[in-house]
Design a protein around this nucleic acid. Structure first.
Length: 597
RNA sequence: GGUCCCGUAGCUCAGCUGGAUAGAGCAACGCCCUUCUAAGGCGUGGGUCAUGGGUUCGAAUCCCGUCGGGAUCACCA
C-alpha cells in the first residue's frame, strides 16, 4: 500500500542480492525527487557504496536495474551522482487517485470506541483582563492540536482552567468598588472582560500613585509597596473571599460573570471551544489536601515558619514552595489540585498543557511533584510550550499600551476581508449575510493561518502596522484555491458533466498531474507527523505547497474545455480530491473554507 | 552565574530522522484577464545559513567553543 515502504523493501532485497549486504529498511533513504531532475522518488545510494565496492554511479545503475526488473510500479530510472531517480508508472498514480477519491475520510484516523483519552488544556485566562494576541496564539494552537490528535485516533478532551481567584482578582474588584459608580457592561455598553480589565488597570495606576506619594514622604520603596492602603485593602478582600464573606463573594461572582460573558464572545469569534472547564476556585483546596498528604508521607517538609516545601535538588531542580506560612496556596498547589480532579473525572492516558515557554520550569517541577505524589502519569505529561508573539519593538507591554487586543484584531481582520471583497466585487450578487460569512471566514483564515504556519516553538513577530496579508503564503490564498475548484465543479454540474468516480488507469497524464497525486498521497503521513510533533505548522505548510502546485496546474491545464473526456474526467476528479484535502487540512487548523469568495 | 530556546534574502517564515545548485511569501521591477474566479500565473534582482572548529564520502541540519537575542531560576499567576 505504502509506496515508500515498498521501494525500501525492494532496495533491501537488491542490496542483499547484488552485494550480500544486510540493510535495515529504515537505512534506505527515500525522498521526493527534486524538481530539476526527472523522476518521482529518489533513493540515496551512498549508504551502500562501501558494501558494493563500486562507485555510486555504478551501484545506482545496478540497484536501479534490479528494481526495474523486479517491480511493476517503477517504469524507469536514471542515476545522477549517488542518486537513483525512479519513475513511477502513471497507472500507479491513477490508482492512487482513485483510492483517495473514494475515501471519505482520507488522511483521518477515526477514534475507535476504546481509544485512549488525551486531555488538552489550553487558553487558561486570568479573569482580570481581556484576551490579547498572546492568548490568540495559545487558543489557536490548543484547538488545532486537539483537532490533529483527533485525526490521529485519540479521544480528545479539551479543557480550560480559569484562574478566577487570588489577589489579582481582588484588585479589580476593589477598584470597581471604590471608583466604579455601579458601572456594568449593560450600563456602559462595554464588553464585560474589557470593563473589568479597565478597573484592573485603574487599580495599578492608583496603587503606583500611592507608592510614589509614600516614597516622597520618605518611606522606602519596598516598604511603601507593602504598606500602601490599596494593597492592604485588596489583601483584606482576599481573606474575606476565602472566609466566604457573602458581600465579597457576590461581587466576585458578578464581576466574573461579566468576564465570562466577554470571553465566551471572543472564543466564539475565534471558533474555539472546550469540553470541560475547571475553575481554580474549585480546585485549589484539593491541591492543599494533596500537599498535606505529601507532607505526611514525608515527600515534602515544613520549615520553621510553617511553610511547606519540596526538595527537588536531587532531580537537578531547586526547592519549591507549595504552601505559604499562613497556609494559603500558590500556583503550583493549584495545578496539583487541578491535575487530581481531572484524573478523577476522566480516564486520561495523556495530559497536554498548552502553555507558553516561559513556564517550562514550572512544568518540569509539576511533572516531578506529581510523580512523587504517586500519580503514575505525572512523568509523562506533555508541556506543549510555544514561543512569544512579539511586536517589532519587542514584547507586548500592557503598561505601555502596546498590547494587541484580541477582539480588536479579529474585528479588524474581518473588516479588511470585507473591504477587499467589496473591491473585487466577486460577491456582488450575494446576500449581505453570505458576504458577512465569507468576510468572517477569510479574515479569520488570514489570522489563523498567519499564526499557525509558524513553528510553535519559535518566537514570532507580529507587525500591527503592516496588517496581515491576503496574498501569497496566506490563509486566503488557500481558501481562494478551494473556492476556485468549487466554482469549476459547479460549472461542470451545470454543463451536465458527470465525471463519475473511476479513472482508467491507462490514461496518459502529465508530470504536473502525477506530482499533484503524489502530494495528495502524502497527506496522511503529514497528519501523523503533525500529531507526533504537535505541530499545526506542518499541516499549514503542506496545504500551501499543495495549493501552490495546484494553482500552476489550474493556470496551464484546461478542465471544462478539455475535449478528451477521459482527461476532463480525470482533472475534475483530481481537483475534487484536492479540494477535499484542502478542506480537511484547513479544518485541522480550525479554518473554514468558503464555497465562493 | 546555572538551565532552556532561538539566530537562514531588506522584512516575515519553510527547509523531515545529515544528501543534489539553500526555498517560499512580502516589498521592488517587468509580463499575462474576448479563455474554467487575476485574493491567480510567469519572470528579474536579492544569501559567507551569526561565527570558529570538529565528525562525515557529504553539514543550514549532528557535536564543542565564541558572539548576539529571548525565557527562566518568586511566599506572582
Amino acid at each position: 500500500m505504502n509506496l515508500e515502504n515498498d521501494i525500501q523493501t525492494i532496495v533491501v532485497q537488491a542490496v542483499k542480492t547484488l552485494y550480500g549486504f544486510d540493510a535495515e529498511t529504515n537505512q534506505v533513504q527515500i525522498q521526493k525527487t527534486k524538481k530539476e531532475f526527472e523522476g518521482d522518488l529518489t533513493v540515496v545510494i551512498f549508504p551502500f557504496v562501501k558494501a558494493a565496492r563500486k562507485s555510486p554511479e555504478v551501484a545506482g545503475q545496478e540497484i536501479g536495474e534490479f528494481i526495474h526488473k523486479n517491480n511493476n510500479i517503477v517504469s524507469g530510472f536514471n542515476v545522477i551522482k549517488g542518486f537513483l531517480n525512479l519513475n513511477i508508472h502513471k497507472s500507479y498514480w491513477l490508482e492512487t487517485l482513485n483510492n483517495i477519491h473514494a475515501d471519505q475520510h482520507f488522511g483521518i484516523l477515526l477514534p475507535a470506541e476504546d481509544a485512549d483519552i488525551m486531555m488538552i488544556e489550553y487558553s487558561s485566562p486570568n479573569t482580570n483582563k481581556p484576551l490579547h494576541l498572546g492568548h490568540i496564539r495559545n487558543n489557536l494552537l490548543g484547538f488545532s492540536i486537539a483537532e490533529i490528535q483527533k485525526a490521529n485516533g485519540w479521544k480528545v478532551v479539551k479543557t480550560n482552567i480559569v484562574n478566577d481567584r487570588g489577589i489579582h482578582i481582588c484588585k479589580s474588584m476593589l477598584a470597581w468598588k471604590l471608583w466604579g459608580n455601579g458601572e456594568t457592561p449593560q450600563s456602559t455598553g462595554i464588553k464585560g472582560d474589557h470593563l473589568v480589565g479597565k478597573y484592573y488597570v485603574l487599580f495599578d495606576q492608583e496603587y503606583k500613585a500611592e507608592i510614589k506619594w509614600l516614597t516622597e514622604t520618605g518611606m522606602g520603596e519596598e516598604e511603601a509597596k507593602k504598606s500602601a492602603s490599596l494593597i492592604l485593602e485588596a489583601q483584606k478582600m482576599l481573606l474575606a473571599w476565602e472566609n466566604n464573606d457573602p458581600e465579597i463573594r457576590h461581587l466576585w461572582e458578578t464581576m466574573n460573570g461579566w468576564v465570562y460573558a466577554g470571553f465566551a464572545e471572543t472564543y466564539n469569534q475565534l471558533g474555539v471551544d472546550f469540553d470541560k472547564i475547571y475553575y481554580e476556585s474549585e480546585t485549589y483546596l484539593d491541591g492543599k489536601s494533596k500537599v498535606e498528604e505529601g507532607l505526611k508521607s514525608g515527600v515534602f517538609y515544613k520549615r520553621d515558619d510553617e511553610s511547606v516545601w519540596a526538595d527537588l535538588t536531587g532531580e537537578g531542580l531547586d526547592e519549591k514552595l507549595l504552601l505559604r506560612g499562613d497556609g494559603t496556596s500558590v500556583y503550583m498547589t493549584q495545578d496539583i489540585g487541578t491535575a487530581k480532579l481531572r484524573y478523577d473525572d476522566f480516564d486520561i492516558k495523556k495530559m497536554v498543557y498548552v502553555v507558553g515557554n516561559e513556564q517550562i520550569y514550572h512544568f518540569q517541577v509539576l511533572s516531578v511533584l506529581l510523580d512523587k505524589l504517586g500519580f503514575e502519569w505525572g512523568k509523562n505529561l506533555v508541556h506543549f510550550s510555544y514561543g512569544m508573539v512579539e511586536l517589532p519593538e519587542g514584547k507586548m507591554k500592557s503598561r505601555e499600551g502596546t498590547v494587541v487586543d484580541a477582539d480588536d484584531l479579529i474585528a479588524g481582520m474581518i473588516e479588511t476581508a470585507c473591504e477587499t471583497s467589496e473591491e473585487l466585487g466577486k460577491l456582488d450578487n450575494c446576500t449581505p449575510q453570505e458576504k458577512e460569512n465569507v468576510a468572517r471566514m477569510v479574515g479569520l483564515g488570514a489570522l489563523k493561518y498567519f499564526i499557525l504556519k509558524v513553528d510553535p516553538k519559535k518566537n514570532m513577530t507580529f507587525n500591527p502596522k503592516e496588517s496581515i496579508d491576503f496574498n501569497g503564503n496566506t490563509g486566503p490564498f488557500i481558501q481562494y484555491t478551494y473556492a476556485r475548484i468549487k466554482s469549476v465543479l459547479r460549472k461542470a454540474a451545470e454543463m451536465g458533466i458527470n465525471f463519475g468516480t473511476k479513472i482508467d488507469s491507462d490514461l496518459e497524464i502529465s508530470e504536473k498531474e502525477s506530482y499533484l497525486i503524489q502530494l495528495l498521497a502524502a497527506f496522511p503521513s503529514v497528519i501523523e507527523e503533525a500529531g507526533k510533533e504537535f505541530s499545526p505548522a506542518l499541516i499549514a505548510n503542506y496545504e500551501y505547497e499543495l495549493v501552490k502546485e495546484y494553482n500552476q496546474f489550474y493556470h496551464d491545464f484546461p478542465m471544462l474545455k478539455e475535449e478528451n473526456t477521459h482527461l476532463r474526467q480525470f482533472r475534475l476528479i483530481l481537483s475534487e480530491s484536492i479540494a477535499s484535502v484542502v478542506k480537511t487540512g484547513m479544518k485541522l487548523l480550525g479554518i473554514d473554507v468558503p464555497e465562493r469568495m
